[in-house]
């Protein structure tokens, strides 16, 4: 039980994928032009993350070390397809707005990162809650950025008109366009470095991780650390 709450806390705050780990930047910037899109993207990623973490954790003793990456990709891609078909059937309008970014959940760094660093070496239940925590952390991140951009850019909150914003000043429509996404993220990272908040961007070589730990040189990364310790353990065992 303690482990479960610890996992949730870890995903939501300590290692929040959007604000601390800075993973999955493509969807973070692309779909947050409104809060609803952010929630939709976050929840679909959460669904995939929970299922893939559970499955990878269940199969962790059967997947050979050498082909684990392709195996993880196939597992993740299958769940993405399931989520994609479900969304196409039941939430068609969201499916149309998110478009190409739904199949692209496959290459989201968070999912492969969690598979590699957590689910592949922990029991199913805590992996499931690790996925839930990380997914909800991602959802909250996207939603907050979405609310901010939507409020400034079109003066609405979850699609509802906010009179204070539309009556008193002109909305900054650039905020809901592509450049606005970069500006919001720039201000966010600037605030983080101002207040020395724990974040990937505050490290010297941080940011821009593609979940590709094999070719990564950043030794300060938490994923990388667990990956490295894993490797040295295996070599010691030999």
């Amino acid at each position: 039980m303690k482990n479960i709450t610890e996992r949730l806390y870890n995903g939501l705050f300590k290692e929040n994928p959007t604000f601390v780990l800075m993973l999955g930047m493509c969807p973070t910037l692309a779909v947050t032009s409104s809060a609803l899109n952010g929630i939709g993207m976050g929840l679909s990623t959460t669904a995939v993350l929970i299922m893939s973490n559970l499955m990878i954790s269940l199969l962790r003793n059967f997947i050979p070390q050498k082909v684990r990456m392709p195996a993880y990709i196939v597992i993740v891609a299958s769940f993405v397809t399931v989520v994609q078909l479900l969304m196409q059937a039941y939430v068609r309008s969201l499916y149309d707005t998110l478009g190409i970014y739904i199949p692209l959940i496959v290459v989201n760094c968070i999912i492969l990162g969690r598979a590699e660093s957590y689910a592949s070496k922990n029991p199913p239940l805590s992996s499931l809650f690790d996925g839930l925590g990380m997914g909800l952390g991602f959802t909250i991140g996207l939603t907050l950025i979405g609310i901010f951009r939507e409020l400034l850019g079109s003066g609405t909150f979850l699609g509802m008109n906010i009179p204070v914003f539309t009556d008193n000043f002109t909305t900054v429509s650039i905020m809901v366009l592509a450049p606005g996404a970069f500006f919001v993220l720039a201000c966010l990272t600037a605030l983080q470095s101002k207040f020395k908040a724990p974040s990937a961007t505050n490290r010297k070589n941080g940011f821009a991780c593609s979940g590709n730990c094999h070719s990564c040189k950043d030794s300060g990364c938490s994923i990388q650390k667990s990956f490295q310790s894993d490797l040295t353990e295996k070599e010691a065992a030999k």
């Binding site: 450049p179 606005g180 996404a181 970069f182 500006f183 993220l185 720039a186 201000c187 990272t189 600037a190 605030l191 470095s193 101002k194 961007t201 941080g206 940011f207």
Partner: peptide, 13 residues
Amino acid sequence: SFKGMPIVLITAG
């Protein structure tokens, strides 16, 4: 506070 990533993101914007 804008050194490093923030200024790069502003440039990208």
